[in-house]
Amino acid sequence: GKELVLALYDYQEKSPREVTMKKGDILTLLNSTNKDWWKVEVKATANDKTYERQGFVPAAYVKKL
């Protein structure tokens, strides 16, 4: 199945390749080969529509579930 990670801290994206997350968010882990930056998929809701974004977050800010 898919691997999930838990956001340990809030993170505000600093570039278009990154994604914003809030502490407590559960994210889908896409790639953890880089030890510093993990690629995740974030589900977000805006205007009653759910959309998914993929991007990088600092590996130290998340932990595998």
Rank of each mutant, 00 (worst) to 15 (best):
G55I: 04
K23F: 04
K2C: 14
L65S: 03
A44R: 12
T45N: 12
K49Q: 13
E41N: 07
V19Q: 01
W38V: 05
R17N: 13
Q12D: 14
K64T: 08
V19K: 01
S15W: 05
G1W: 12
K2N: 10
L8N: 03
A60C: 14
E13H: 07
A46W: 14
P16H: 10
P58R: 04
D48A: 09
D10P: 05
K64Q: 08
P58Y: 04
Y9V: 10
W37M: 04
K63P: 02
L30R: 04
K43A: 11
K23W: 04
D10N: 08
V62S: 00
T33Y: 09
G1D: 11
L6D: 01
K35M: 09
S32D: 15
R17I: 11
R53E: 03
D48W: 06
P16W: 10
D48M: 08
E18I: 03
L65T: 04
D25F: 04
K22W: 09
K64M: 11
V62R: 01
T20E: 02
V57A: 02
E18Y: 05
S15P: 03
L4K: 11
L65H: 05
E3D: 10
T33L: 09
D25S: 06
N34I: 05
R53D: 03
T28E: 09
A44W: 15
Y51Q: 09
P16T: 09
W37R: 02
W37H: 02
A7R: 00
L29M: 03
Y61M: 13
E13A: 15
G24R: 01
V42M: 12
T33A: 12
Y11E: 03
L6R: 08
V19E: 00
N31V: 07
K39P: 00
D36G: 08
T20I: 03
V40H: 00
Y51E: 09
K14L: 08
V42K: 15
I26T: 05
K35V: 10
Q54N: 07
K2E: 09
F56E: 03
Y9N: 07
E18H: 06
N31L: 08
I26R: 04
D25C: 08
S15K: 07
A7C: 14
T45K: 12
K64D: 04
G55F: 07
T50N: 11
E3K: 07
K35A: 12
L27H: 03
D48E: 11
A60W: 09
G24W: 06
A60H: 11
L30K: 04
G24A: 02
K39V: 14
Q54T: 11
K14Q: 13
L27T: 01
V42C: 12
G1K: 13
M21K: 01
Q54F: 07
A44C: 15
Y11F: 06
M21R: 00
A7G: 03
V62Q: 02
K35D: 10
Y11A: 01
Y51W: 11
T50Q: 12
L4W: 13
A60V: 08
K2D: 08
A59M: 04
T28I: 15
L29E: 01
A59R: 10
W37Q: 02
Y51P: 09
A59H: 02
D25I: 03
L65D: 02
E18D: 04
V62E: 02
L8A: 03
A60D: 09
A46H: 14
A46C: 15
L4D: 04
K22Q: 08
L65F: 08
V42E: 04
K22E: 05
I26Q: 04
G1P: 11
L4S: 07
M21W: 02
D36Y: 15
Y9G: 04
L65N: 02
W37E: 03
A7I: 03
E18G: 09
K43M: 14
L27F: 07
P58F: 06
K22R: 12
E3L: 12
V40T: 00
P16V: 09
N31A: 08
V57H: 01
T20F: 04
L27W: 04
E3C: 15
T45H: 11
I26C: 06
